[in-house]
Computed example of a mutant assay.
Amino acid sequence: MRAITERDLRSCFVNCSKGDAKRLNLPKDFTQAPWDDLDFLGWRDHKAPDRAFLVAETGDRLTGIALRFASAPGKARGFNSTSLCSFCQTVHTGGGVALMSARRSGDAGKRGDSVGQYLCADLACSLYVRGKKQTLLGDAHNDGVPLEEKVARIRANLDTFVASVLA
């Protein structure tokens, strides 16, 4: 992903008001984000634990999506259970995967329509597939798929999700 500015970030959201986008809390490490290792920028709001945000490059533009956790992150599952992220297929224990919903853009969103996905609770999918971050399971669930295929899988799943929010 290319490096983006705060102005670019705040102006690209498709499913919240301009005022909401202006007030959203940026990731704490926004200026030091590992852009070369990101397929999308995703973060949880450190002041509102039920909110998260995702910014992706779609075609030649940025698309920002405001997300909500369907339930309290980390509370829904026990440590012995495992869950799979819909974007990157990373297996997590406990609350490492959370159901997140996004209000659709436009009239559909105004009517209350939304879409949901089970995603890495910290939205660090890109870092998991590149081995820059590990789950509590370590490499135990490495699926042996080459990195290029994993990145293509994230992009395809991300593009599908963004298209469903925009539809």
Rank of each mutant, 00 (worst) to 15 (best):
E6C: 07
T63H: 09
S17Y: 04
G109L: 10
H92W: 08
L123H: 03
D8F: 07
S17V: 03
F87G: 06
G109V: 07
R2F: 06
W35N: 04
D122T: 05
C88V: 06
N80T: 15
R77T: 11
A21P: 01
K28F: 02
G94S: 07
L38V: 14
T5L: 02
F161A: 11
D60V: 10
L62N: 01
Q134A: 13
L26M: 08
L158Y: 15
F40M: 08
L38R: 11
S71I: 00
T135N: 04
D8L: 10
M100I: 06
V115L: 01
G95Y: 04
N157D: 09
V145D: 09
H92D: 02
N15W: 02
V91Q: 13
K75G: 06
S11Y: 08
W43L: 05
R44M: 09
A56T: 05
G106P: 02
A72H: 04
D60L: 12
T135P: 02
R103T: 04
K28L: 08
L166R: 05
G78Q: 10
C125S: 13
D37W: 01
D143Y: 09
V97I: 11
H46Q: 13
A72F: 00
R7F: 09
G112S: 00
L136T: 13
L119A: 09
T63L: 08
A152I: 11
P27K: 03
F79T: 11
D37I: 04
Q117E: 15
A98T: 15
N142P: 03
D39S: 15
G112E: 00
F30T: 05
A140R: 15
S71C: 00
A76V: 05
L147D: 09
V55H: 05
R77N: 11
A66V: 07
T135A: 06
K47H: 12
K133V: 12
K18Q: 12
F79M: 07
P27R: 01
F53K: 02
A98P: 10
V115C: 01
A124G: 09
A48L: 12
S11C: 05
C88Y: 08
D122L: 01
A102N: 09
G94Y: 05
K28G: 11
L26I: 01
G138W: 11
N15A: 02
A70T: 10
G64H: 01
R111P: 08
V14S: 01
P146H: 06
R44A: 14
T82I: 05
Q32A: 14
Y128G: 13
S86L: 00
D45M: 06
Y128D: 09
L123N: 03
D139T: 14
G116D: 00
I4L: 10
D29N: 14
L41I: 10
F13I: 00
T31Q: 03
L24H: 05
S71L: 00
F79D: 02
C16G: 11
D39A: 13
T93R: 15
G74V: 05
R103L: 09
R104N: 07
A121L: 07
A98Q: 13
G95T: 04
L137I: 06
S17P: 12
M1G: 12
D60H: 12
F13W: 00
N80D: 15
G138M: 12
N15P: 04
D113K: 13
D143M: 08
C88W: 06
F161P: 15
T135G: 04
C16F: 08
D45C: 09
S126G: 15
L26A: 03
T90A: 07
E6H: 01
A156N: 15
D45G: 07
F53M: 00
W43P: 08
T93D: 09
F69H: 14
S17N: 08
G19K: 01
